[in-house]
């Protein structure tokens, strides 16, 4: 029963986010600020992780493909793996950690210190000011960060590969793109907008509904990460299914 109530409330919350996000006036400045906090500040994390993931993936691809004498397919294999799934999902999960925890804790703290009430008392729609801006910033940032992850991943792959075979940069990227279609890149990248929506909405919901003091803030933060990660993975299954429906392989 309690679970049903939470799911129902969360769904209404998400619906409200969508409705409010398209209705003017827009909190442009605050959205920009959130884009900085959530987007720009995640760049080092995503770039470094992407690079590392690229190196590791490259080593695995090499190990598998070398068995069949198919070393020539390493860049393409790595690129497909990154672009189609690894990039979007890894970026999504990393950011649900960083952004989800951040939003959950920040809004939770604002809730218990009455800052949200203070916003309302200042005649500011706290939902639009705090939640919608974060969700929009996240929806914008996720595909951008995913693209960054894809790139640094491929760059990591290139570094790993060139250290073994000395493949030139251009040749590597040209080969990497021989197997990727628009239908690989576009839906996979754009689906992270849904990830962004999930992360920011879930974290905001839990943050805003924090009740019992400092302890509640910590809980909101942890729950944000857990709930948004699980929802994100579940949504990913659904999204991949939908993508395959529209772009059968």
């Amino acid at each position: 029963m309690h679970l049903l109530v939470v799911v129902g409330e969360a769904a209404r919350f998400a619906g409200r986010v969508i409705v409010e996000s398209v209705r003017p006036p827009y909190e442009f400045r605050e959205t920009l600020r959130q884009l900085f906090e959530l987007g720009c500040r995640s760049v080092p994390l995503i770039a470094a992780s992407g690079f590392a993931v690229g190196i590791v993936l490259s080593m695995h691809t090499r190990a598998s493909l070398a068995r069949f004498g198919a070393e020539a397919l390493i860049p393409a294999g790595l690129a497909i793996a990154l672009v189609r799934e690894t990039g979007p999902l890894t970026a999504g999960l990393l950011l649900s950690g960083r952004i989800g925890a951040g939003i959950g804790a920040e809004l939770g703290a604002m809730k218990v210190t009455e800052q949200i009430d203070a916003l309302e008392a200042t005649a500011v729609d706290s939902f639009r000011y705090l939640v919608v801006t974060r969700v929009i910033a996240c929806v914008i940032a996720l595909p951008l960060l995913t693209s960054l992850m894809n790139f640094t991943g491929m760059f990591g792959g290139y570094v790993a590969e060139t250290s073994i075979t000395g493949t030139p940069f251009q040749a590597y990227f040209r080969q990497a793109f021989t197997a990727i279609e628009f239908s690989d890149l576009i839906p996979a990248t754009l689906k992270t907008m849904v990830f962004g929506f999930i992360i920011a909405s879930v974290a905001s919901y839990l943050g805003i509904n924090t009740n019992s003091g400092t302890e509640g803030v910590g809980r909101a933060s942890t729950q944000s990460v857990v709930a948004s990660s699980i929802l994100l993975i579940a949504a990913n299954v659904l999204l991949v299914r939908i993508i395959f429906f529209f772009y059968p392989v």
């Binding site: 703290a109 604002m110 210190t113 009455e114 800052q115 009430d117 203070a118 916003l119 309302e120 008392a121 200042t122 005649a123 500011v124 729609d125």
Partner: peptide
């Protein structure tokens, strides 16, 4: 909420713990 905003601009509120935006 929009009409409420109009009314709220006419009211100042000092919170118990100030509730400054940190």
């Amino acid at each position: 909420s929009r009409e409420l905003s109009r009314v709220r601009k006419r009211i100042g509120f000092l919170f118990q713990y100030a509730a400054l935006f940190d």
